[in-house]
Design a protein around this nucleic acid. Structure first.
Lengths: 379, 379
DNA sequence: TTTGTTAGTAAAGCTTACGAACAAACTCCG
DNA sequence: CGGAGTTTGTTCGTAAGCTTTACTAACAAA
């Protein structure tokens, strides 16, 4: 008789759902439970998921046959009843390859285990390569990493700069000279393994959510040669109407001019915040006070640009990724202060801003999360 | 072997899915098909949804028993094969009540049919009522509308200003003196019908999407006594981490000061754009040129505030709702120009900005959409 | 040894969707 | 005008998926 909005069905069902889809969902639910809580018994999973012991046993049997789940022995603690048979993800069954194309002069990659731990690394200098040459470099790096893997590969994830659609086509990445580059398709064809390609900042946001305990409504600002952002809304990455969500580097900030940007406008966020500009400014500054002022100004500009976004989206957390010596400290402090001064404390009093805890591996680890999510429904 | 991101399972499955849930989904799919395409045969629906004729027949039989769907005769056009039995939503089976609490001095409501057409209206002057008095007024208005309905009522939808959570609790609405007002629960208890309560701007965005052919990535700006926004991302309303998404009225705009706002800050969006301020400014202006300038300035400020949001979310469309004599024309023109000057044309060249086509009924009609969505999975 | 608890399995049944087959009703064409 | 072909919608039987019920196994506590 009474119906809150939340209890209504999903808006605009648009695709049929068959029992097997439900099965797949529940299968992922089991994997998810094991992935997050670690070792557990069938009965534990049943309690956690709300499914019955019978169903869980059935699903687990299936997963054991596939080699994704293993029995790890019996629970030791003394309590009444039959001792539980413990289960876990077979964390030594697969490895993941993560590749980061977001750095200016170098492509970096790694082999990771299912927990996102980096097992080995590889990198290739870009040396100014663009277009098909850049694609060839990615393929070479991937081949190196595939050879480094010591277990079957669950999938290959790539975090690329620029605009990437849902099929893994890089629609536009000026630095790499890509326009409509079919990266997912070509890598998948070359290596015969599942491949996922997505925007670097989006991928970084996923990593921060999975490994860095970030909130479910979060924005990650990635500062490097350019400035980009990845958005997580209610735990889901946002892609945007033309897959260009997060492309904030060329949004003009403030109403008082600013430096000329490569895009032709004045006062773009990148003119305040991109590392080449900041480094140049700091090098030119003669006193510590002047350097502080440059960082404070950059932080304020970031805050000015983010305030409307924080207000419109009611974000809970902002995470910065990039050179620690530039971002951490004065700049971050100025950003959060500006944000607080420009938004309603009532709604955003709990807004937090911090550096990523994942350092330079954030994109590679995020790429791994995407593989986990696509292949197992886990993250 | 190859897996694009889109083909992966949903991120973070978090709840079990049973066959009956799939059934409910498919049921909504049938209703959705009929709602949008109108009269169709069982075979048509089967083709459209991808489900088989058998399954569709089964679902339709269920819906006919419930009175939601009716057979409307046989298809007339001459073509080979057995003539199709046509079906339609039983559009005369139910009515919906929509209530708009967003105006400053008046509560308005209407009885609507399932297509969102307004059948009859009612309103109550607010006369400064706040707190429980305001709640009593809402209840009185609802009672009037319930009495006006000539068919069973599918549900009651309310668009309220302020912050509203998913359970229909108005967490905060300063103008009405509400803090934690359990509007959904009290109305549902009083009338014994399904009740949905949500933020006015969110609801308006839904209306524009359903009736105004708005894009799936859209922001609706609602200008009145205050300024608020409703966001639709990929067709789904955004609520935010603390249900305060769209609360942009008190975001500071620009870096050059501005008037003092009731919230204590200077240069909030509301100080530039809220109707009392605009009307006062226009009344004080002595020349047509001065009036133009005020509207242009307001539009520019809106553009400045929205640019980072458009960039971050890659929005495709912005819709304005409010007094036409203020918004339509110079102001809207200045907003879109400012937006184009401040964002990357490459990503947002197709950005459009327009007035709502739904006029003053937008919130009531949006409230009806919420009822349709919650009760039938249709919108 | 008895009692009670917990883990996991087996069997039966319900729900949901599907495919095959078919009757009804129509058009088309020789 | 009558058979061939087409389309609709139903009936019947089946497969998949989850649940309920009832069971065995294995333990702790008294």
């Amino acid at each position: 008789m009474t119906t809150g909005f939340a209890s209504g069905r999903a808006l605009r069902p648009t695709q049929k759902v068959l029992p097997e889809h439900a099965r797949g969902h529940n299968r992922s639910l089991v994997l998810q439970t094991l992935y997050r809580a670690g070792t557990q018994s069938r009965a534990d999973i049943a309690r956690e998921t709300g499914l019955t012991k019978v169903t869980i046993s059935d699903l687990v049997a299936e997963l054991i046959v596939e080699g994704l789940v293993i029995e790890t022995g019996q629970r030791e603690d003394a309590r009444p009843g039959k001792p539980a048979t413990l289960l876990d993800l077979n964390r030594n069954a697969f490895q993941i390859i993560g590749i980061d194309l977001s750095e200016y002069a170098i492509f970096r990659g790694a082999v990771l285990d299912l927990d996102g731990k980096i097992l080995s690394r590889a990198e290739l200098p870009l040396a100014g390569a663009t277009g098909k040459d850049a694609t060839a470099l990615v393929t070479r790096l991937a081949a190196t990493l595939v050879a480094q893997a010591t277990l079957p590969i669950l999938g290959l994830g790539v975090g690329s700069p620029g605009v990437v659609d849902l099929a893994g086509v890089v629609l536009s990445a000026p630095n790499l000279g890509w326009g409509g580059e079919q990266l997912q398709a070509s890598l998948a064809a070359r290596f015969g393994i599942p491949v996922v390609v997505a925007n670097d900042a989006n991928v970084a946001a996923l990593a921060e959510h999975s490994f860095g305990d970030a909130d479910s409504d979060m924005m990650l600002i990635k500062v490097g040669h350019g400035v980009g952002a990845g958005l997580l809304l209610d735990g889901t990455p946002l892609f945007g109407s033309r897959f260009a969500a997060g492309e904030i580097g060329h949004v003009v900030v403030g109403t008082d001019g600013g430096l000329l940007c490569v895009c032709g406008k004045h006062g773009c966020l990148e003119t305040w915040l991109a590392t080449p500009r900041l480094d140049a400014g700091l090098a030119a500054a003669t006193t510590p006070g002047a350097r502080e002022q440059i960082l404070r100004e950059a932080g304020q500009r970031l805050g000015i640009a983010l305030a409307p976004v924080v207000g419109a989206l009611n974000l809970a957390e902002i995470v910065l990724s990039g050179p620690t010596h530039l971002l951490d400290g004065t700049l971050a402090q100025a950003t959060i202060e500006t944000l607080r001064n420009r938004t309603m404390a009532e709604f955003h009093g709990d807004l937090t801003l911090r550096m990523t805890t994942l350092g330079e591996d954030i994109v590679m680890r995020g790429a791994a999360v995407m593989v986990l999510s696509a292949q197992l429904g886990v993250s």
